[in-house]
Design a protein around this nucleic acid. Structure first.
Lengths: 230, 230
DNA sequence: TATTTCTTGATAGCATTACTATCTTTTTTG
DNA sequence: CAAAAAAGATAGTAATGCTATCAAGAAATA
């Protein structure tokens, strides 16, 4: 699986391109680990700097603030995911199969964990589940949106909507269906792990690596029942 | 419609019961207006105190912090909604009709806006859409959950799941279906208003009172296609 | 009615956060 | 090698998120 693709990011996401220097790359890499460890809320640039052996001010040269770093990471994730989708489906013709591939992808199933890259994709995935909605649930969505910060997410949704329309050209809710699918995957994962009584996927034993098989089945059921309905 | 029902709240949600004093009630009432005006992120107890003509310290006597106030408001909303659901469906026998009622309820459709109560339910609804997921998307979910802070949400989901099972006793995902329905209603509303390209409900003209008719149709379609599927 | 208790007001203070500014040293690059 | 750019180091500041204390007024109780 191709991890080390250089993903070109929107310039509004940063002050100085973190891909352009060793320090920048470490900010991203360690930022992911910090956010995953203690959560975005508890994280500060000071703590990140200490963890990295650098100074707060240096990080501020790359990212305007913590929120922008989060938006950057989430955008990176969506671009990465879209790339994976394209890569995994470009030899497929059946839209049904493409959707199935995507379902597995958003749950990060069957992914070779040998991350050659500096990015810990599983940590990033956990951040996306817990924190990504905070990237847009703010007062400045409109402004951020104007700066195209959510373009990667919209692009991905657009692509899924496209596959849905390949499958059912007359489906009326392709975009809402796509965004619902993604969001549902995320908070159902969160609920399963943290508020299991809101789901039907209670873990067999606590401490067990959680089983996404039933969740996948649920998502598949939801998606295809809506697309196959009269 | 009964607004002025006294809703009994979990004691862990506050330090001193806000229902028990005039000041307390004003904190809740004005808290809703402040959160709605400037968002939870921008809100502080200092600003709330200034707005109310009281002191920061007085508010701290009622609520541990801003987050707890948010959790309180959201819990209140869920209890209110469950009450409305019970009230509106206790004379119905058809589970299908009950679900239809609920769909309209989560969108706050056909509600007599003559709020006799001090609580501005529309403002609270907007807060729930924008901020409620932040009530549980934290590092201390587990602890908060142990204190039963999310019980109202779980109770409501449980009730919806119950209706689903009335309708389809063999449905395997009643709880996930219920929580998905609620969450989908919320962020699709948010997307419709803020990131419309993620939905199929683009407003006809900006500034127009947004039309939830198509969203309602979408939710109905999603719900019943999954329940009626083979 | 007197008194104790409870509630709120008023003021102060403190550690942390979220930056900004400046200056020096190191590294890169033309 | 010179000039420019990046990073390190140190300081500082306004706002945030509290906690503490004490006095005044209101309410409950003896």
């Amino acid at each position: 699986m191709e991890y080390s693709v250089t993903i070109r990011m929107n310039e509004h996401l940063f002050l100085r391109d973190p891909e352009g220097s060793e320090l920048g790359r470490r900010i991203v890499q360690q930022g992911i680990l910090l956010f995953d460890d203690i959560g975005v809320e508890e994280a500060t640039f000071k703590k990140l700097a200490e963890r990295m052996g650098t100074k707060e001010a240096s990080i501020y040269r790359y990212f305007e603030n913590k929120h922008r770093l989060l938006v950057y990471l989430v955008a990176w994730y969506w671009q990465w995911l879209e790339y994976q989708l394209v890569f995994q489906t470009n030899n497929l013709t059946d839209p049904c199969e493409k959707l199935e591939r995507f379902l597995r992808l958003i749950l990060l199933k069957d992914l070779d964990t040998a991350s050659s890259d500096a990015i810990d994709i599983h940590a990033l995935h956990r951040i996306v589940i817990r924190e990504s909605s905070k990237a847009y649930l703010t007062r400045h969505v409109t402004e951020d949106n104007r700066q195209q910060l959510f373009k990667p997410y919209k692009d991905l949704c657009g692509r899924i909507a496209g596959i849905i329309l390949e499958y059912r050209p007359d489906y009326k809710f392709a975009r809402s269906r796509a965004s619902s699918l993604i969001e549902t995957a995320h908070y159902q994962t969160f609920f399963m792990q943290n508020l299991p009584s809101l789901t039907d996927f209670a873990p067999i034993a606590s401490g067990q690596p959680e089983d996404t098989t039933k969740l996948l089945e649920f998502l598949r059921h939801l998606l295809f029942s809506s697309l196959n309905g009269k």
